[in-house]
């Protein structure tokens, strides 16, 4: 049983981001299931307001859906801060297993309690560091570096703890600030470093993989509850179909973006396994510091599940 529904999905990113491919695939799936009755209308580039604002609009039943990174939402659900913890996942496979498994379900329950239905975990990608000062091969290289971070306590502490001068700044100002050297460095997934042209004003890129903050495909619970069970099931299933396409495209694009960054003459390096272990060790104080506000049970649960996977 399907009704005509216009589902407005807002995004902070632009239409050419892999989320666009995901939405396309999701729409195709919805068309098949609902006979064209469930229609997604995407609004790109923050046209319907920032991610946090859009999420609040979902909670009050004003807007249907948003694709947002988990980081801005910690003020609504502190447990989401777990995904901001530095060096939590070591590779994408680990992240998929945790997010699509029991732990992801556990977080979904918490989100439902604050009026949000998470249809699926999409991918934003591992965040990496770019800078204009020096190659970063060990944590000591962060010393004194002015790094732009999101306005989020875990990120601020992560970089301050490594000796950097973490500066929160609006995304729209980052390019100019890098170009004029107001800041030395920024951290984002490769795709963003590429599409936002940050590589044009940076010299070094380090594959730090310091955070994997997922995209959440959130739906307003107030609106979701008014949908028929068929509609709800179709949305959940098709969000998963979209997720798989989006993850595939973003994986390919990450490689392409990295090639483009290299071709532009940037020096790209990775942390050696020993340095990775050291930096992870060094960052453990951040886990301790934020344990209480995220919830010790949440942090323990994710670490336990990861230990299980890594066995």
């Amino acid at each position: 049983e399907f009704n005509d529904r216009n589902i407005r999905v807002s995004n902070g990113i632009n239409a050419d981001h892999p989320v666009g491919n995901g939405i396309e695939a999701m729409q195709k799936c919805l068309d098949e299931k609902s006979g064209g009755k469930l229609k997604l209308t995407a609004f790109w580039g923050g046209a319907l307001g920032g991610d946090l604002q859009a999420t609040q609009a979902l909670r009050s039943g004003v807007q249907e859906a948003v694709v947002t990174s988990s980081s801005p939402l910690v003020g609504i659900e502190p447990a989401l801060g777990v995904f901001d913890l530095p060096f939590l996942f070591s590779n994408a496979e680990e992240a998929y297993k945790v997010l699509d498994g029991d732990f992801g379900e556990r977080m979904n329950k918490k989100l439902e309690a604050v009026g949000l239905v998470n249809l699926a975990y999409w991918e934003n990608g591992f965040r990496n560091l770019s800078n204009s000062v020096r190659p970063v091969t060990k944590w000591e290289d962060f010393e004194g570096m002015k790094v732009r971070v999101m306005q989020n306590n875990v990120f601020l502490d992560t970089f301050q703890n490594l000796g950097a001068n973490a500066t929160p700044m609006a995304f729209g100002e980052v390019f100019s600030a890098l170009e004029t050297k107001t800041i030395d460095a920024q951290e984002n997934p490769y795709v963003t470093i590429d599409t936002s042209k940050f590589f044009e004003v940076q010299k070094y890129v380090t594959e730090t993989n310091h955070a994997y903050t997922p995209f959440l495909f959130l739906f307003s619970k107030a609106i979701f509850d008014t949908y028929t069970p068929d509609e709800q099931a179709a949305l959940r299933e098709c969000a998963t179909v979209g997720r798989d396409v989006e993850r595939q495209v973003i994986g390919d694009l990450n490689k392409k973006s990295l090639e483009k960054i290299k071709a532009a003459g940037l020096e790209v390096n990775a942390l050696s396994p020993e340095e990775q272990a050291r930096i992870r060790e060094k960052s453990m104080v951040v886990y301790q510091k934020h344990m209480d506000e995220i919830g010790a049970d949440v942090v323990d649960a994710v670490l336990a599940e990861l230990a299980e996977i890594r066995k």
Binding site: R59, P72, V74, N152
Partner: peptide
């Protein structure tokens, strides 16, 4: 919904 949200 605003009351339950904390400034970052």
């Amino acid at each position: 919904i605003n009351w339950s949200m904390k400034a970052p």
